[in-house]
Amino acid sequence: MSGERITVATDGSCLGNPGPGGWAWACPDGRCDSGSVADTTNNLMELRAVYEALRAHDPRVPLLIQADSMYVINAFTQWLPNWVANGWRTAAKKPVKNRQCLELIAAELETRDVEWEHVKGHAGHPLNEKVDSLARHAATQVSGRNSSEAKGHRP
């Protein structure tokens, strides 16, 4: 690993849950991206934001991922090892939801130095407010389209 740790805020939004959804990530230096899916869930959009953020950054550069989703943070800091050991079953012996997305992110995390930070949503945190707005905008944009996916802001 090399370089200074980069902060990346992530967020997902869903209009209806399930319904039209959006995801977004942003860095303090202004780099950001967002996109949307016509029919999805909030948790899938929260996960998609993390996946897209990881894929957008060099794996050799350490990241600090800020999220307002405890589901996302707990999935990768607490629950993942038990899910894998239990054949992707929860403590209640039910199949883990969103397994495919979780596995994609877990594979990305294997070769990276990532720290996680929970930030309170809708509390004035500048980067969280930015990704919330981008994700909500992406979800709103796709809600009126028939396409299954649309790309959002990419400065």
Rank of each mutant, 00 (worst) to 15 (best):
A38F: 08
S13L: 01
P81N: 10
G87P: 08
V37M: 07
T77S: 07
A150W: 14
T41L: 05
H122P: 10
V131S: 08
A91T: 12
G87M: 09
S69P: 08
P62T: 01
A9I: 01
W116L: 04
G12H: 08
Y51G: 07
L104A: 13
H118D: 01
I105K: 04
N74V: 04
V119S: 12
R60K: 13
H122R: 00
L47Q: 14
C14S: 10
W23F: 06
G3N: 04
A75K: 15
T111H: 15
F76D: 08
E110W: 10
P18R: 06
P81C: 03
E115R: 14
L80E: 14
L47N: 12
G124Q: 03
V96K: 13
G35K: 09
L47H: 11
A135Q: 05
L15I: 04
D132G: 12
R5F: 10
V96R: 12
L64V: 03
V84S: 11
D58W: 11
E4V: 06
S148C: 00
N17G: 04
P28E: 10
A92Q: 15
S13N: 04
G19F: 02
L102N: 09
T90K: 06
L109C: 09
G19S: 07
L15Y: 00
P20D: 00
G121E: 02
V96S: 09
A67W: 00
Q141D: 13
I65K: 00
A49R: 07
L64P: 04
P20V: 05
R48K: 15
R136L: 01
C14D: 01
Q66F: 12
E103N: 07
V72W: 10
R55A: 15
C101G: 12
L80G: 13
G16W: 07
L134V: 01
R31T: 12
S133Q: 15
V72N: 07
L44M: 15
E108K: 10
F76V: 04
D113I: 06
L44D: 08
G35S: 07
N86Y: 00
I105P: 05
V61F: 01
D132Q: 06
V119L: 05
V131D: 06
S147W: 14
A139I: 03
E103M: 12
S34W: 09
A91S: 13
G19H: 06
S69A: 13
G124C: 03
R89Q: 15
Y71F: 14
C101V: 11
H125E: 00
G30M: 07
W79V: 00
N17M: 03
D29F: 05
A123N: 07
N98Q: 12
L63F: 11
N86M: 00
Q78K: 14
P62W: 13
I6C: 14
Q141W: 09
E129H: 07
K97V: 07
A107V: 13
L104Q: 15
N98C: 02
R5P: 03
A26M: 00
A67T: 10
A26K: 04
A139P: 00
D33T: 02
H137D: 12
G124D: 08
T10G: 08
C27M: 15
P62S: 07
N146P: 08
V61M: 01
